[in-house]
Design a protein around this nucleic acid. Structure first.
Length: 354
DNA sequence: AACTCGGGGAC
DNA sequence: GTCCCAGAGTT
């Protein structure tokens, strides 16, 4: 066992946080914790984890649940497909594997929601399978440990290096603890702003020995977002609401599908809006307010124009439009746009363009 | 390879 | 406001 491995494990033994999913090695709890922790911080997960295992303490109880009840417990945690995949996988295990967790990576990795990270994280913790992990914390650790300045971690080459490095570092024994220790180190000491004075493996860390730990990891390439003009309408008629949004070139539609209408490149969104309203037989006034919104996790920037208008009350309910009944979705808990629209609909006399 | 999913915390 | 987070699935 290398110095790095020995020191890291020794540090983990005395510094590991006491977390609800570490009280035993129940594969179900470990699995659940890893699902909840995807792209989600420990602090946010703990409460959800406790409530979830109280309601569904075992794999069998989860598999027997209705999806709606599972989603209810997930409400507010985000990435709801995680919950659906978890539930689907639980049913598969109960129906096709007698409710037993497969220790075989070939079988486990076929379950919905199980990618390469989940495979290693769960099977190494639960069954001491010798499988590596790469995620945000360990990524920082690997890169600093070996001082890789010359590699774009998001490239294919970078990914290959990360997983190979993770594999090479694994000890012979205590695989689960070792993987946990790597993440614990990344989460508590080897943070973006590292606390190297307290680090148990700073002598083994190439970046620290060069004094370059603050320069790593290299910042990701910034995504460039195109400024686009878009028109979104929320139209109320007799208690029903029609949503339309159009972007340049008719390239995309949001919130609800609708007949495409293109905003010409030279056309301002205000002009496009006027034409659209004219088509619909709606008299409206277009405001001047410009702002930006963030739509869920997708950060595209949108020019917004405030609009208040009066409906003429005709020629709206065209057959190719889809209508939403407020009761069907306004209280739906799972989606930001749903809530945003619910806000709009609290004042249903307003027709707003945003 | 790029997009999408989501909410919260740090700054 | 921006950036990041115990990633996976889809296209």
């Amino acid at each position: 066992m290398s110095n790095f491995q020995r020191k890291l494990l020794k540090w983990f033994d005395s510094h590991a946080r006491e977390l609800p999913w570490r009280i035993n090695r129940d594969p179900y709890r470990i699995w659940l914790s890893e699902v909840m922790l995807q792209q989600t911080t420990v602090a946010a997960v703990i409460g959800y984890f406790d409530r979830f295992v109280t309601k569904f303490p075992t794999l069998v109880s989860l598999a027997a649940a209705e999806e709606a009840d599972v989603l209810l417990l997930w409400q507010g945690l985000g990435y709801y497909s995680r919950a659906r995949n978890l539930h689907r996988a639980a049913k598969i295990l109960v129906n096709e594997h007698n409710g037993k967790f497969p220790e075989d990576p070939e079988i486990f990795s076929k379950l919905p929601g199980i990618g390469r990270y989940m495979l290693g994280a769960i099977l190494s913790q639960a069954f001491e399978q010798r499988l590596p992990i790469v995620e945000a914390n360990t990524r920082r650790v690997y890169v600093r440990l070996l001082s890789r300045f010359d590699l774009d971690l998001d490239s294919r080459e970078g990914q290959v290096w990360l997983w190979q490095t993770a594999t090479d570092l694994l000890p012979r024994k205590r695989i689960g603890d070792f993987n946990q220790a790597l993440m614990e180190l990344g989460a508590t000491l080897c943070r973006p702003q590292p606390l190297c004075e307290e680090c148990p493996v700073s002598k083994e860390c190439l970046a620290y020995q060069s004094g370059l730990q603050d320069q790593l990891p290299l910042s990701r390439k910034k995504k460039e977002f195109e400024q686009v003009q878009t028109v979104t309408l929320v139209i109320e008629d007799q208690g029903k609401f029609l949503l339309r949004q159009i972007g340049p070139g008719g390239r995309w539609a949001r919130l609800w599908e609708f007949p495409q209408r293109t905003i010409e490149p030279e056309e301002t969104e205000a002009e496009a809006c006027r034409k659209l309203l004219e088509e619909l037989g709606i008299r409206a006034q277009i405001g001047k307010e410009i702002t930006q919104i963030r739509y869920g996790v997708t950060r595209f920037k949108i020019q917004m124009t405030a609009l208040e208008a009066e409906l003429t009350g005709r020629a709206i309910a065209r057959e190719d439009f889809r209508w939403l009944l407020p009761g069907e979705w306004a209280d739906h808990p799972l989606s930001t746009p749903m809530r945003k629209l619910a806000e709009i609909l609290r004042n249903p006399r307003q027709l707003r363009l945003f």
